[in-house]
Nucleic acid binder design. Structure first.
Length: 782
RNA sequence: GAUCCCAUUGUCCAAUGGUUAAGACAUCUCGUUUACACCGAGACGAUCGCAGUUCGAUUCUGCGUGGGAUCACCA
């Protein structure tokens, strides 16, 4: 037989699925398994980590489709945010900031119309069985509407507020950001001990941020620190600048850190913020939105340059006691790596700090797979320190639907029927008759992607309601996507967004996380090209939910072999099933056939249970082991001669068992390797089984003819053990596997195999089987 | 510093309070012709360290070591 061309098969099958709308959603069904599909950001190439995660969720969905009959599995793309903005700017060679928001969004939607189908190709090639006719983008008008509505609902319920507040700010992107968007990054810096002056004496204070000196509003010492006891309440002179600030007692000053004296500046970090509030100090703002200093000689300098300059000045003024180089971690913006600042600007927030316990309770109502991922959610909620800042001072995104009257400071919101709305495009009047000022800011992208269940639900006019059955996602976005979705569903609908959440692990390479910066990324398209999609999926099924998997190219070979084996075994079976109608059954099944089918039934039972618990990797292992070992290596060998040479019921019995067994095994394999199983189904089974696609067939149910049979399956295993013994003898004797032998069986085995002796003879090449004292294999010489 | 995950053969990855600790790749020895050399048979080869619980621990508990993730630390 010619080598099968996997790629040809896969593209043919993919086209078949698409032409026949195999994955179209049937909303009439009573019970629908609904999935809150992760919308990928299409600005980057698909990563093998994505392929890994999406494959795992697709195993679950494909199983559920067969088991439950109806699936809601939409597809979406997350195009709302910086990465897409940059992609479009680059491709179209434009600057979004120079366009009106409405024009840019329009351009974006046009761009996506052309670009998205190409980007979705990766998902289709992998065999992800979404209904691609139900596709949303997080920037399309529908999504904008849902997102804005959710904002308005939250405002009405009192969960949203607007406030002037020192917010976590990215000077590079020039926007406020949320706690979840912070990352740590190590920087080397100068750690300087400065001479402040109190009553003519030096007071030493260590800092990494001397440029904040102009914003110094106080210094703290610990009330228990004997060294500084008598200084409390006095004033201290800030070096170089010669203004005075009070010396205050505060527990937050740690005796053993630095010199034990802590300088408070507005705002060096979030503790400064707390401290200033606690002591009702007056803040001084010296950092502008663009990250420059607005004070004296340092005006217009970036923080980093200002630091350098002030250190030089301090040095020449003799105000530095000592300087030490050190490396420390700084909070940076996860999108650009820029150290964040705290800048006082008006921003919109969703109040969550007062709801930590409720949010933990919501998390408890959801089933987490694996369970330990639940702890990551809890830890995140417990560690929250800020309300969710949802406004972004960006150009591109879902507009915040609000206006403000400058005369009466009234906030004005649109009617629901007018959504989606861009305040910049619509004039709104205040009650007082004054024209209101439109809100320029947009919503945090997470504020929109946190309503993916509602956006998806909107695609089918609300026919699918919360909670969805499943949320699949990666563990890197528990604190963002999972968390925010839970927040929104709770605050808007007092509901959990989904009943179950399954979390996929990462793909590593040699134990290291794959990342673009390390340059160790493997692209799924090259893997598919070299092996095939089924092989990639088969590999992805090798690890449990939540577990990382080390990528090794050789592991792809295993999948490819299996696919080849499936094709070959099927060929063999159908070569011997000519004119078999799929139903004809002998009056009595041969014992081996009967037991084989019983074992298939037991397999179905186990595999079903595993899939129900989302343990696709165990399911895979079970089917795989059974198919390769029990079926191909043993059962097929056992019945081979009977189908070649047998007649009447003896042959029919084997044909019946082969057909039935193979048909079931293929269905069990279908969620994991959908292409090859579909290929085989279309070629051989469809004319008999009538289902349009194997993926629309119902999941096999375990059938047992009688309890007696269940008790007899051990015979099969014993049979195989004896077979193995004989093979071993042959191997040791360096004989071929089909060399003829005379076989002596012990009494127990001889009696046990009473109904299967003929088959035993066939498979072992035994010309004679007799009962004897000891097991013995004697070679017949020719 | 805190929390969580992980540690099994040369490599990747299963399972298990007690029998022979599974499989894949690699290695070695054979075989093959009415499914498959992308094959078949056989062989070789493993539970991180210490203590505890137990009749019995690779499995449970604690500590240690090593790896990873997340959060914090930014005087």
């Amino acid at each position: 037989m010619a080598k099968p061309d996997f790629h040809e098969i896969e593209s043919k099958i993919q086209k078949f699925w698409e032409d026949n709308k195999i994955y179209s959603t049937n909303l009439k069904s009573k019970e629908i398994y609904s999935v809150d599909t992760p919308p990928p950001n299409i600005s980057g190439k698909m990563h093998i980590g994505h392929a890994f995660g999406y494959s795992q969720q697709d195993f679950i969905v494909r199983f559920m489709r067969m088991k439950m009959g109806s699936i809601f599995y939409p597809f979406g793309t997350d195009d709302n945010g910086l990465p897409t903005e940059r992609l479009i700017e680059k491709t179209k060679k434009i600057k979004s900031i120079k366009m009106s928001r409405a024009d840019f969004v329009k351009l974006c939607l046009e761009f996506l119309k052309d670009y998205t189908p190409e980007a979705i190709k990766d998902w289709k090639d992998l065999g992800i069985s979404c209904d691609y006719n139900l596709t949303y983008s997080t920037i399309d008008p529908q999504a904008q509407k849902v997102s804005q509505k959710s904002f308005l609902d939250l405002y009405k319920k009192g969960h949203v507020y607007k406030e002037n507040f020192p917010t976590i700010w990215c000077p590079h992107c020039q926007t406020s950001i949320a706690q979840a968007e912070l990352e740590d990054k190590e920087f080397s810096t100068k750690f300087s001990t400065l001479k402040f002056e109190c009553e003519g004496k030096d007071l030493l204070i260590a800092t990494t941020r001397p440029e904040m000196l102009p914003a110094c509003v106080a210094v703290f010492v610990n009330p228990k620190d004997e060294r500084y006891k008598d200084l409390v309440g006095k004033k201290v002179k800030v070096p170089l600048l010669d203004f005075e600030v009070p010396i205050l007692e505060d527990e937050s000053a740690q005796i053993d850190k630095g010199t034990g004296v802590l300088m408070i500046c507005s705002y060096g970090d979030r503790f400064d913020l707390d401290s200033i509030n606690r002591h009702k100090l007056e803040a001084k703002t010296i950092i502008e939105k663009d990250g420059t200093i607005n004070f004296g000689d340092y005006s217009g300098l970036k923080v980093k340059d200002a630091r350098k300059k002030i250190l030089e000045n301090l040095e020449s003024a003799g105000k530095i006691k000592k300087t030490k180089e050190m490396v420390h971690a700084v909070n940076v913006h996860d999108k650009c790596g820029t150290p964040i600042e705290f800048v006082n600007t008006p921003q919109w927030f969703i109040r969550i700090m007062d709801k930590k316990q409720e949010l933990i309770d919501q998390g408890n109502k959801i089933k987490w797979y694996p369970e330990f991922m639940h702890k990551r959610y809890d830890n995140w909620v417990k560690g929250l320190e800020w309300d969710w800042s949802i406004s972004r001072n960006r150009h591109f995104g879902v507009p915040i639907p609000a206006w403000e009257c400058e005369k009466c400071n009234e906030l004005i919101f649109p009617e629901e029927k007018d959504l989606p709305v861009d305040p910049l495009q619509k004039e709104m009047k205040c009650k007082c008759g004054e024209i209101a000022v439109p809100e320029k800011m947009v919503l945090d992208t997470w504020a929109t992607s946190s309503v993916t269940p509602q956006i998806a639900s909107d695609l089918v006019k609300g026919k699918i309601k919360l909670p969805f059955s499943l949320r699949p996602q990666g563990h890197d976005i528990i604190r963002t996507w999972a968390f925010y979705t839970i927040v929104k569903s709770y605050l808007v609908e007092e509901e959990i967004p989904w009943k179950d959440i399954v979390i996929s692990g990462n793909v590593s390479l040699g134990g290291e996380k794959m990342s673009k910066s390390k340059g160790n990324v493997v692209g799924p398209e090259e893997v598919i090209k070299k092996y095939c999609a089924d092989a990639l999926r088969y590999w992805a099924a090798g690890s449990k939910l939540g577990m990382d998997l080390d990528y090794q190219e050789k592991d792809l070979v295993t999948g490819k072999k299996l696919i080849n084996k499936i094709l070959n075994a099927t060929n063999f079976v159908f070569m011997n099933l000519e004119n078999y109608d799929g139903k004809a059954c002998p009056k009595k099944l041969e014992e081996v056939d009967q037991i084989f089918l019983t074992k298939v039934g037991m397999l179905v039972e186990r595999v079903t249970e595993y899939f129900m618990n989302y343990e696709y990797s165990k399911a895979k292992q079970e089917i795989d082991g059974f198919f390769w070992s029990d079926f191909c290596d043993n059962y097929l060998e056992i019945v081979k001669k009977r189908v070649y040479q047998g007649e009447g019921d003896k042959k029919l019995s084997a044909q019946y068992a082969l057909y039935k067994g193979l048909s079931i095994m293929l269905k069990l394999f279908a969620p994991i390797v959908p292409f090859v199983t579909e290929e085989v189904y279309q070629k051989h089974f469809k004319k008999i089984e009538k289902g349009k696609s194997i993926h629309l067939c119902s999941w096999p149910v375990p059938e047992f003819n009688s309890k007696k049979e269940l008790n007899e399956v051990y015979k099969f295993d014993r049979f195989v053990r004896v077979l193995e013994e004989i093979r071993k003898e042959k191997s040791n004797a360096q004989k071929s596997m089909n060399s003829e032998i005379k076989l002596v069986l012990q009494k127990e085995d001889f009696e046990l195999f009473n109904g299967m002796l003929e088959d035993l003879g066939n498979v072992t090449g035994a010309v004679e089987i007799i009962e004897g004292q000891d097991f013995k294999v004697e070679f017949v010489s020719n």
